[in-house]
Amino acid sequence: MIAEIERIEVIIEEFLTLAKSKKETAYKPKQLCRILQHVALLLNTHASYRDCQITTDLTAVDAWIYCEENALKQVFINVIQNAIESMTRGTVHISLKTEGSLAVVEITDEGCGMEESVLQKIGEPFFSTKETGTGLGLMISYKIIEQHKGKMTFTSKIGLGTKVEIMLPIVLNCEKES
């Protein structure tokens, strides 16, 4: 009974996050590589527990974006946790590059991969491939990226893993915060 109550609590928290996302949020300029470094550090223990590692290639790009930092962290945590959970051992690689006026975050894993039919359903409410998944995490992540005027795409091959690309507009001229 306690496990089911905890599951209901998670679902309610996800609904509350979705409901909160409709209000206006104060976006501030933030350095994207710092956000990604913080998330990677946060998830290293979870990765180690599953005999996985997280590698990064973030230092070459100094991309600043307007964002609500905690919302973006939620997206990156969700995507990286999904990557870790798709493997029994392996590597999740996080990289950052720029393409024109966009910062592009690539998160790749060496997991089991997904069929095209599954890829087409990613982000739909209540769709999950996990036994205990609510099917709300990626739906909320898509919404957060959309609110940041960005885009998120998935490519995957069975047995080879999955790549998630998150594209966000770069701040060109502003007073930057750390």
Rank of each mutant, 00 (worst) to 15 (best):
N173R: 12
I11N: 02
K149L: 09
I2G: 08
E124H: 10
A3M: 15
V92R: 04
C112E: 03
Q74C: 05
E177P: 01
E85T: 00
I11G: 04
T162Q: 10
F127A: 10
R34P: 01
L32E: 02
E69W: 13
I54C: 04
S21A: 07
K130N: 06
D62N: 09
E146A: 08
E116A: 01
G113P: 01
L138R: 06
G123T: 10
T91W: 14
D57G: 03
E177F: 09
S95T: 12
T132L: 08
S86V: 05
A47R: 10
C52Q: 00
N82F: 05
M139T: 05
D51G: 08
K143N: 11
L172C: 00
S48A: 01
A63N: 01
E165D: 01
T98K: 11
L136M: 09
E24D: 11
E99F: 10
C174S: 01
E106W: 07
I35R: 00
K23T: 08
K22D: 14
G159L: 13
H46A: 14
C174N: 02
I35A: 01
I122S: 03
A47C: 14
S141L: 09
G150A: 11
F126V: 15
S101T: 08
C174G: 02
H148V: 04
K23W: 04
I2D: 10
T56Y: 05
I166H: 03
F126S: 13
E9W: 14
T153W: 09
I94H: 04
G100R: 07
C112A: 08
V92M: 02
I35H: 02
S101R: 11
M87Y: 05
E68K: 13
G135K: 03
Y49F: 04
K97E: 15
K151Y: 11
N70P: 11
F126L: 15
E177M: 12
G123C: 10
K143T: 12
K157F: 14
A83S: 01
T132E: 09
I11K: 06
E14P: 08
G133N: 06
L160Y: 11
L43F: 06
N82K: 07
T108M: 00
I12S: 08
N44E: 08
K163S: 15
L172H: 01
A40C: 04
V79R: 02
F126Q: 15
F76S: 04
I166P: 02
E165H: 06
I65W: 03
T17S: 11
C33L: 06
E69C: 11
A19D: 09
K157C: 15
V171A: 09
L32P: 00
T153L: 14
V104R: 08
E13F: 09
E99M: 11
I35E: 03
D62Y: 02
E6K: 13
T155K: 06
G100L: 07
W64F: 15
L96T: 04
G150H: 12
V105A: 07
